[in-house]
Each structure stands twice: as structure tokens, then as C-alpha cells.
Design a protein around this nucleic acid. Sequence first.
DNA 1: TCGTCCTACTTGTTATAACGTGTCGAGTGT
DNA 2: ACACTCGACACGTTATAACAAGTAGGACGA
Lengths: 259, 259
Amino acid sequence: MADFRGRPAYLQIADDIRSQIIDGTLQAEDRLPSEADLMADYGVSRIVVRNAVEVLRSEGLVVKQQGRGSFVRAQRPQRTRVVGDLYSERPEASPFAASARASGQVPEWEYQTRRTTASKTIADRLGITAGDPVMRTSYRFFADGEPAMLSTSFEPLAITEGTPVEQPEGGPVTGVVPRMDAIGIHITHVVEDVTGRSARPYEAETLKVPVGVPILAIERTYYAKSRPIETADIVVSSDRYVLSYRLPVPPRTDRPTPI
Amino acid sequence: MADFRGRPAYLQIADDIRSQIIDGTLQAEDRLPSEADLMADYGVSRIVVRNAVEVLRSEGLVVKQQGRGSFVRAQRPQRTRVVGDLYSERPEASPFAASARASGQVPEWEYQTRRTTASKTIADRLGITAGDPVMRTSYRFFADGEPAMLSTSFEPLAITEGTPVEQPEGGPVTGVVPRMDAIGIHITHVVEDVTGRSARPYEAETLKVPVGVPILAIERTYYAKSRPIETADIVVSSDRYVLSYRLPVPPRTDRPTPI
DNA sequence: TCGTCCTACTTGTTATAACGTGTCGAGTGT
DNA sequence: ACACTCGACACGTTATAACAAGTAGGACGA
């Protein structure tokens, strides 16, 4: 392979394939040439073509499957977790629920609830003291039979203990806001802190995505006035989800000094 | 190296080093043993130790520097891009300036504005026709002198052409909301669609992060009623930023039926 | 003293080779 | 017709080898 500008061969090959993906020569789901083909096409060793494809894989443009080949990855995420004026905590509940249930035995979500005590991190987020009793609930949400979202929520038992809504699931009402309404606590706002990072091994396994794929991690906390009521760690594959936040912009009332 | 469970050696070594990072044996900024050291320590070939370190690099736990070594990467993001309160408290200030001030940073940015025509993607987002004239502005935001955020915004010239606020920057007022207020268009809400993915080469270079590090990509669109007024593509390193969304939860009577 | 050069050490790139493991279809036997 | 086997082919893992390129510190000369 001509050593153009001294730029490493594997990067040039990656550039070449990438441009083919962008200009549509290679389309979503298409199989890339095999490693042997690429070796012949570019006249390089296998390690070079593997490095090239690895670059594209780390960019999320390509997925590899042992025994089958490397494939151009579908680009746009398909599902949207909408958060905003019409706040919904169960994105699967509406459009996807039917198909998920119809197509298999897998329920839309499964959960596990247990009493435990607050770690320091959770205590800070809930405004309580480390070691205070909390109700911890872990969820796995499914869409089309595939794991799509993980969530672990924490509620101070000081708030719910002994009430009809002590159990987050299986009671007369579900969802944090209605449950808290039922015991006279009215949620006023929710804060979501969003970060992106690579999937940890446990998350990759549970969400059935390749290790290292970027995921979105959300720290969500519900408040009644300034009092934290519930907090949760939510993990979604950024392949499959867009987070859509719709925020009101109130009309201008005053005119503070500009920047 | 003992071939435990048939799990590949490089993954076992990655596990080993990862646990040392998590339990603090290796702390932030510490140098990992060199490849030669790891080869000797684990009794494997260089390709195995390189694969192992590559796993950690793709997880964002480690950065490599040619000629120096591999280093444990500082973990937690330090800055927060707050969205929510800002729109109600200080509608005049641009979100970035307000966020930077909130974290005690001096905001700096550079920009480039030019007239162009809308691509199909942008036209769809702005509710106009592909080829319609738009004003395109690319920003690079800095914090502490380091590039921190990239943004490319588009405004239909049908809205601003010939007005005092045709230029997004350099005019009497800045920020989308106040500028549009000045010409009688009142922004009612903003939608931010958040996705996570790996940094593309251009983004990695411009943001000065390693290639493949996860970034957060935001599609932001301002609306006046249901009419799109401005849309922007924003990219931030997920290492350095948390997106914090504060959303009101309307009182019970206004709320849609719970799940 | 100070700057330059050299060298040792580090990761980066590439080649060759071999075997392991997963996939899939063609061929075979019932 | 159908199930099973097997082999071709794909990517996965690992070894050995060599040279390139970036870094840092010590040796050396001005």
C-alpha cells in the first residue's frame, strides 16, 4: 500500500471504508469485505486490516460478528425516551408495549425490590444519612424482547414505610408521581443528570451490547419542593435510545444585565 | 498465564488492571507498568498486553501516550451544563455563558458565521425546504483555555434576514431567545435530543480528547409555539461534562393519565 | 552554565504464522 | 423429505520479529 504522507496504512484504509459508508457505497447492514479480501485489495497484512476495521468499530460505524463478518451498523437510534412536559417514566408502555408482549413471553419489564440501607452516595442524593433504610428496586426494561434499559431506584423508607405504596410495584398505583400523590406528597420537579461513558462489563452483558459501546447514564431525582423523594440510576444503550428533553422557556418578564 | 475458564488472556489481564484502578491500587494519573513489564509479569506476548490495555482505553479508564506510557485517566466530569432553570432565571444569557459562570469559569468562545443553504436534515429540523437560505454559525467554546464544546447552529434567513439580529454574534443582543424577542418572536420551548457515541476524528482532535472516547451529541431546537426558529448540533466530551436537566412536573390535574 | 546530542525506554506500526471458535450451507445418510 | 455431518469461511486469540516515532534524562561540548 502506498504510504501516503506517512499516515499509517490502517488509518488510510479506515478512511477509505468510512467514506464508502458515508457516501452510501456501503449501506446499513451491508457486509464489509472479509479480512482476507481486504488484505488482497490493499496488499497489506491481516493486522493492518484488523486495525482499520477496529477503528471503525470504535467509532460505532461497524459491528463485527465472529463467523459471519463485519457489517455497517444502522446509524440512527430507533427509540426515544421522551422527558419533558409530558413526563413519562415508562417509554415502553406506549408504542412498543404491544409488540413486545405479542412477540414473546418476555414481559415489558422485570423488577426486584428489597429493603436495604443507603450508601453515602445515595444518602447524599436523597438528603438523608448513610445507613438510613431505603427501598431499592432494580428494573430491567425490554423492548421487542431485547433488554433496553436498566434502572435502580431508591426511596427513603422514612417516607413510604407503612403506607399502601411502600412497594413500588404491585400496589394499587404505579409510577413515582402517582404513588407519592396517593400519600399526599406532590412531586414538583425532576432533575436528570446525563453522562455518557463506555458500557461496563455488567451493563454490556445485561443490555446485550458489545463491550465498550457508549451508553447514557442518567441520575434521576424527583423532588417535592426542595425535598428529594426518589432517586434512580438509569442506563440505556445510546445505540438504541435518544433522550428527548422538552423544556419550557417562560416569557420574558424583566431584563437583567446581559453577559 | 493460567487459562482460567478459557477466557482470553487479554481480558483477564484487563480485568486485573481494571480492578486495581477501581480499588485504588492504581490511582488517577499513575503510570501503568510498561508493555515490557506486563509481558514479563503475566508471561504473555506483547500483542496480549496491548489488547488488554486497549480494552481499558476503550472503556475510558486509561490513556496512552507514545513514548511516555499508559496512564490511569481521571474519572469524574468536572463541569455541568445546566439546562432548565437557566431559561427561567436568566433568559438573556446564553446557556453556555450561564453554565460557565455557574461553575466559576470565564466563558470564551470563537465563532464563524456564514450564509448557506439548508441540507435536507437541517431543513427537516427547521420545517423549511432543502435549499432554503439559512445562517450557519459554528462555535468553539473554551473553558480554562481548553476546548470544551462544539456547536453548529442554523437559523432560517426567512426569519432574520434584514433585521438587526441577522448576525447571531456581534449585534446589540446575543443569545437566541433575546435576539428573537427583539424581532417580536417569542421562544416558548426548546427540545434537546441527547445521544451518546464515540468521538469522530474531527471532534476528538478539536476537543483534544483521545479518539473513541464517548461524547454527548445534542440536537437542540428552539420553538416559538410549534414553529422551529433555530436548531443546533452540540458536541461535548462526556468526560468533562454532565448535562443537568431540571424539569417541572405539572400538578396532578394537568398530568396525563399515569401508566 | 547552557544548549545539543545521544541513548535508553516507551508506545506505534507492520509482517508472518498458527490455531481456536462461530456460522452456514452443501452433501450425506436415513 | 429431513436431520445430521462436515468443511469452507468468517472473525478471535496469541506468538515472534522488526523497525518507526515520541519522550526524557544524562553525557558532552561550547
